[in-house]
Write a protein that binds this DNA or RNA. Structure first.
Lengths: 247, 247
DNA sequence: AGCCATTCAGGTACCATGTACGCAAATAGG
DNA sequence: CCTATTTGCGTACATGGTACCTGAATGGCT
């Protein structure tokens, strides 16, 4: 890239198609991003190094810097590519509960397809167009009910927080197992299992132990568990919409 | 460390004080962790490298590996050190709202003291003793009300998710500015400001724009803003406790 | 006291990573 | 065909985690 001062990737669009002299670009920002996403999906973000991406494209590492200013910006682009996969109607339907359920499921699906997505999303404050589109959809779900914009932002935040942490729980240990190179089964049995068992058997944390031993949601399918938690969040929002506020 | 098979750091306690032959250890796991925390507080986690920590202790990088198996485990230890700073009574008071408010404020305070804490906490599934203690306290706040353990876990999750995301928002951009080496004021003005302005002026995301322009909570102090959001979460929990559930 | 098994200290070394720099190759207009 | 311009990418460097190995310290034994 040129020697501009550092600024958000969203303010630095790809160099446009032009008609002057000079060699034509052989790749594109989108192509680099797609390749990075593919590698990250298959082998984890830590495998999506500049060299590896370049190799996959059949070029040299430094060539990528013609399309992406820095590696961190590539993360933002990856996030936006994944968020762009959400299948949302052009505008909310008027049924906020249905709209938010759809949105939540779509984000979860993207998070499972791209196990690095939620981690990146919550580790850096980014505001790409696709993310903004999803956010706008969420805000729009509450439009016309006559709510304060701050309240709406709060509700959307609650939903987002739930989805993020639910998906993270769902894939967290699997990812950790993959990162350390063990197969998930073995990892659960030899790595984390014995520790949790020890904690439970120590009796030092009785309520935690109860939440491990007596949990009913633990026996649901992942889909059902996600939906169950989501319903509670939506219940909470519904209650806040109608009930008086404190403070 | 010895050549044991890889397992959770919490299953690998520091080598005990013994009375056999051999040189005496010059440092300790706690000392290494404390040093790492100090560096991370002052210059960010990325500055807390093995070499840097060792240098601060006046020793060589490889010496640290006598006390900590791997760098990732050091992160777990740092998290637990920070979570151990929470000032909580031995057991909940019976006023769940007051207890959770106290807990939330304590976590926020720790998150502001250690700007890396929330990022680490949400980036890796860890279950150190101090974290378990805080979690147990939160679960205990609902004890005696006759709630289902899964419901209680869900409420605690909501609270946690709120605190994490609120603190992250509070320090997210500041940290990003520090990471890129710009001073925060300049960063906000030259880096993120122009982009948000452009998004707002484009008119493409009217509700997002409204949430930026018409926000009232934006004019509160950080403390007030945190408390405001916290009250809404507690309101939501209160509503869920008394109202019937869907599904 | 002197020897020895055991443990810690930490230097050296290796490999992987992001990326600055510079030059060769390609391209379109003159 | 020459030249300004832009891309392709090899080389090189700084920085990171950490495997390995040698030497130093230590306490129990003879």
């Amino acid at each position: 890239m040129a020697d501009e001062e550092p600024t958000s990737i969203w303010m630095r669009p790809e160099r446009q198609e032009r008609s002057g002299p000079g060699r034509r670009p052989g790749y594109s920002r989108a192509q680099v991003t797609r390749t990075a996403v593919q590698i990250a999906d298959a082998e984890g973000v830590e495998a999506a190094t500049m060299r590896r991406i370049a190799c996959e494209l059949g070029t040299g590492a430094m060539s990528l810097y013609r399309y992406v200013p820095r590696r961190d910006d590539l993360f933002d682009l990856m996030i936006d590519l994944a968020m762009g996969e959400l299948e949302l109607p052009g505008s909310p339907s008027g049924d906020w509960r249905g709209d938010l359920t759809l949105l939540a499921r779509q984000i979860r699906a993207a998070g499972l397809r791209h196990p690095w997505l939620i981690a990146l999303l919550t580790s850096r404050p980014t505001l790409g167009p696709s993310l903004l589109r999803a956010h706008e959809f969420a805000l729009g779900a509450f439009d016309g009910i006559g709510l304060d914009i701050d309240d709406v932002t709060g509700f959307v935040g609650m939903l987002n927080d739930y989805v993020n942490s639910a998906v993270r729980r769902e894939i967290g240990w699997l990812e950790e197992a993959r990162r350390t190179g063990l197969d998930p089964e073995r990892w659960k049995r030899d790595y984390i299992g014995p520790y949790v068992r020890q904690v439970v058997e120590s009796g030092a944390f009785p309520l935690f132990s109860r939440s491990v031993l007596d949990s009913r949601t633990a026996h649901l399918t992942p889909d059902e568990r996600f939906q169950h938690g989501l319903d509670r969040i939506l219940d909470a929002i519904a209650a806040l919409i109608t009930s008086p506020r404190s403070g």
